[in-house]
């Protein structure tokens, strides 16, 4: 994953600033959401209609992998696991 470039080079500084402000506000909200997931029970919806539950640990900064514990797979419980984010469609949890 790469951070998409800001508007075309040479864009006026004012609009660049608005864009950066929007980007940082939304990234901060997203990171706070990730923090609040730590140690929570998360349900992952994956491709091929697979649904698994696990306790969330952490994510790497690019959000490429999730580290989870007690991953409940159809063939048993995996104590520690990494989930590739590419394989996930969505995930949900309660606050």
């Amino acid at each position: 994953t790469s951070i998409s470039a800001s508007s075309k080079p040479g864009a006026d500084p004012a609009s660049l600033q608005t864009e950066q402000r929007a980007r940082s506000m939304m990234r901060e909200r997203f990171l706070r959401c990730l923090i609040s997931m730590a140690n929570k029970k998360i349900q992952f919806h994956m491709y091929e209609k697979v649904k698994v539950d696990a306790t969330f640990g952490a994510s790497d900064i690019d959000v490429l992998n999730f580290q989870v514990s007690d991953l409940q797979t159809p063939i048993g419980v995996q104590t520690e696991a990494l989930i590739r984010c590419q394989d996930v469609i969505s995930y949900s949890f309660d606050m």
Binding site: I3, R27, F30
Partner: peptide, 12 residues
């Protein structure tokens, strides 16, 4: 919609 992650475009 709480936020969209600007890096991955994930929707919260």
């Amino acid at each position: 919609l709480h936020t969209v992650d600007p890096v991955t475009a994930s929707v919260v």
